[in-house]
Amino acid sequence: MRVIRLRRPGTSVVHRLPAGPKLATLAIIAIALSAFPHDAGSIAVTLAAVAGLFLLAGQSPRVLAAEVWRLRWLVLVLGLALWIFVTPQVAWINTGRVVALILLASLVTITTPMGDLLAVLRRMLGPLRRWIDVDAVAMTVSLTIAMIPVVAGFAGDTADAQRARGVRLGVRAVVPLLVRTLRHADDVGDALAARGLV
Rank of each mutant, 00 (worst) to 15 (best):
L78W: 08
V167W: 10
R183N: 13
L80A: 03
G170L: 10
V167L: 12
L169D: 02
T111L: 13
V137D: 03
R72W: 11
R172I: 01
V150G: 04
L64A: 01
A155P: 01
A146N: 08
M147I: 15
G115D: 07
R129T: 14
R183W: 11
P61D: 10
L169E: 01
A136N: 01
R183G: 08
R129C: 12
L107P: 01
V151S: 14
L143Q: 06
Q59D: 04
G156Q: 07
S142I: 15
R183V: 13
A57M: 09
P127I: 13
L121F: 07
V175E: 00
A57D: 01
L177S: 00
V174Q: 08
T95E: 00
A66F: 05
G79W: 14
A91N: 12
R122Q: 04
V77N: 02
V179T: 07
L55F: 11
Q162R: 03
L125N: 03
L80H: 07
L118W: 03
L103E: 06
R183Q: 08
V90I: 05
P88W: 12
E67G: 07
I110H: 14
V188I: 13
T87A: 05
W92N: 02
V86E: 11
D116Q: 02
A173K: 00
L55I: 11
G79V: 07
A119Q: 03
R168P: 00
L128H: 08
Q89T: 12
T158Q: 01
R122K: 09
T87E: 02
I93V: 07
A152E: 06
V134E: 05
W73A: 06
A65Y: 04
R123A: 15
M139R: 10
A66E: 06
L121D: 04
L82V: 14
D186P: 13
G189I: 10
L177K: 00
L71W: 11
M114A: 07
L178P: 00
D160G: 03
R62I: 12
I148E: 04
V171N: 10
V99H: 03
E67N: 05
R180I: 01
A164E: 07
I132H: 02
G52D: 03
V188P: 14
G153T: 15
V63G: 05
G170N: 14
T87K: 13
G153W: 01
T181R: 00
L101Y: 07
A159N: 10
T87F: 10
G189W: 13
R180A: 15
M114L: 13
A138P: 10
T181F: 01
L47W: 02
G170T: 11
V167Y: 02
A155L: 09
W92D: 02
R168A: 06
A51D: 04
Q89V: 04
V77W: 06
M139Y: 08
L82S: 12
L125V: 11
D160V: 06
W69R: 05
V175Y: 01
A185M: 09
A173S: 08
A159V: 10
D157V: 08
G126A: 11
G126I: 09
I93S: 02
I84K: 12
V68W: 10
R172N: 02
I84D: 10
L76C: 13
V86R: 12
H184N: 05
L121Y: 04
R180V: 11
V90K: 13
G156Y: 01
L182T: 12
A51I: 06
R123C: 07
V108K: 05
V75P: 09
G126P: 10
D157A: 14
L53C: 04
V171M: 10
H184E: 12
A146W: 03
P61H: 13
L143T: 15
T87D: 14
